[in-house]
C-alpha cells in the first residue's frame, strides 16, 4: 500500500511501515486528494481493498464541519476536530484530525473511534493489535465492561435488599403510623392467648366516629394527629399484658387479658370513649371525634371460641353499637337497648 514512500520519508523521515505502527488508523493522501496509503485498522474497517490513487472522499464522508469536499477545504481545517464516517460504515461516527505535509507530500488524516467505540470494535471485529499502545480505546472498552459488571452486581444487591425489606415488612408486627401493634401481631397474640388453657380474656373492637369529618375538613395530617391521640389513649389505658392493635384505617382491636367480667370490659370501653372524645387541637384547629365499641369475651361461651368467632362477635356488637347512635358500646349477646335501660347506651353526642 505504498505509493509515494520516498516523498514522505524525505519530509518527515518516516517510512510507510512506521506510520502504520504509530497510527494504525491514518490515511495519507496526496495534494490532489488521492489516497497514498491507509493504516491497517482503516483497511480492516473499510472492508474492501483501498487502492492507491482512489479519491479520499470516496473512502470517507466528513460530516462536521459541514461542506468539506476537497483538499483545500480539508487543509483549512488542519489540526481541528473532524467528525466523519467511513462510507463502508455510515452509522459509526469517527473522530479525526488532518495535517498538511510540506514539499508536495500531501496530508495525513489520523482517525480514532468516537463514542461509538464499543459498537465499532464489535462490528469490525477489532483486536488489541488494531490499536496503537497510546490509544486509550482499549482502556475505554475495559472500563465499559468493568462498569457493566459492577452495575450488574449493584443491581443484584439492590434487588436482594428490596426483597429483604419486603420480607421484613411482611413480618413486621408494628403499625408504623401509631406505634401500636398491627393486625398480624394481634392475630399472633390471639392465637397465643387462646392456646393457654385457663386464660379468659376480652376483645374490644373499637371504631372511630366522625374521623372522616376530621380528615375531610382539616386534612390527612390532622387525621394522622387524631390517630396518634387515640393511640396514646389506648396505651395509657391498657396494662402491660394487654394489647392494642390498629387493624384498619380507623379501626382498633384490644385484647384485655385475664378478664371474665363484662362489667369491667364495659367500664374500660366507656373510659376509652370518654378520653377519645376529649377534643385535641392540631395546627390551631379543634379536632373532636368519638368511638363505638363492640365487646366479646371468652368466658361468655360454653365451648372454647375460635379467634374468628371472638372477633366476629365483637364486630357484630360494634355494628349494633353504631346502629344505636355514635359513642356507644355494646356487649355481644347483651339484651338490646330498649328492653333494659343502661346509661352506657345513652347517646353521648
Amino acid at each position: 500500500m505504498t505509493g509515494l514512500p520516498s516523498a514522505l520519508s524525505q519530509v518527515i523521515g518516516l517510512s510507510g511501515g512506521a506510520l502504520d505502527t504509530l497510527m494504525p488508523m491514518h490515511i495519507w493522501v496526496d495534494d490532489h486528494g488521492r489516497v497514498v496509503q491507509a493504516g491497517p485498522t482503516i483497511l480492516k474497517m473499510a472492508r474492501r481493498d483501498v487502492r492507491p490513487g482512489e479519491r479520499l472522499f470516496d473512502l470517507i464522508d466528513i460530516r462536521r464541519p459541514a461542506r468539506i469536499a476537497n483538499m483545500q477545504d480539508l487543509l483549512r481545517q488542519a489540526g481541528g476536530k473532524l467528525t466523519l464516517v467511513l462510507r463502508s460504515a455510515p452509522d459509526l461516527p469517527l473522530r479525526g484530525s488532518a495535517t498538511g505535509l510540506q514539499g508536495g507530500a500531501g496530508a495525513i488524516l489520523n482517525l480514532s473511534l468516537g463514542l461509538s467505540f464499543a459498537r465499532a470494535v464489535a462490528e469490525f471485529g477489532l483486536t488489541l493489535n488494531d490499536f496503537s499502545p497510546c490509544d486509550q480505546t482499549v482502556e475505554l472498552l475495559y472500563l465499559h465492561e468493568a462498569n457493566q459488571s459492577a452495575a450488574r452486581l449493584s443491581r443484584r444487591l439492590t434487588e436482594r435488599l428490596e426483597s429483604a425489606r419486603r420480607a421484613a415488612e411482611e413480618q413486621a408486627l408494628t403499625d408504623t403510623l401509631t406505634g401500636l401493634s398491627n393486625r398480624r401481631a394481634m392475630d399472633l397474640e390471639l392465637a397465643r392467648a387462646l392456646g393457654e388453657p385457663n386464660e379468659d380474656f376480652g376483645i374490644l373492637h373499637l371504631d372511630l366516629d366522625f374521623f372522616k369529618q376530621v380528615n375531610d375538613t382539616h386534612g390527612h395530617a390532622a387525621g394522622d394527629h387524631v390517630l396518634g391521640h387515640v393511640a396514646s389513649v389506648l396505651k395509657g389505658e391498657l396494662r402491660r399484658a394487654d394489647m392494642a392493635a390498629r387493624v384498619g384505617g380507623d379501626e382498633f382491636v384490644l385484647l384485655i387479658r385475664d378478664c371474665n367480667d363484662t362489667e369491667r370490659l364495659s367500664s374500660i370501653a366507656e373510659r376509652l370513649i370518654q378520653r377519645i372524645e376529649l377534643p385535641t387541637s392540631f395546627d390551631g384547629k379543634r379536632c373532636q371525634i368519638s368511638a363505638s365499641v363492640g365487646i366479646s369475651m371468652t368466658a361468655a361461651y360454653d365451648d372454647h371460641p375460635s379467634a374468628d368467632r371472638l372477633l366476629n362477635d365483637a364486630d357484630v356488637a360494634l355494628y349494633a353499637a353504631k346502629n344505636a347512635g355514635r359513642g356507644r358500646l355494646m356487649v355481644h349477646g347483651a339484651i338490646p337497648p330498649g328492653t333494659r335501660p343502661d346509661r352506657r347506651q345513652t347517646d353521648v353526642a
Binding site: 488489541l128 482499549v138 465492561e145
Partner: peptide, 16 residues
C-alpha cells in the same frame, strides 16, 4: 466469564 474478559484486556499474548 466477565472477569476472564477483563483479564484478557491485559494483552494480546501471555507475555503481554
Amino acid at each position: 466469564e466477565p472477569l476472564r474478559r477483563l483479564l484478557r484486556f491485559g494483552g494480546n499474548t501471555f507475555l503481554d
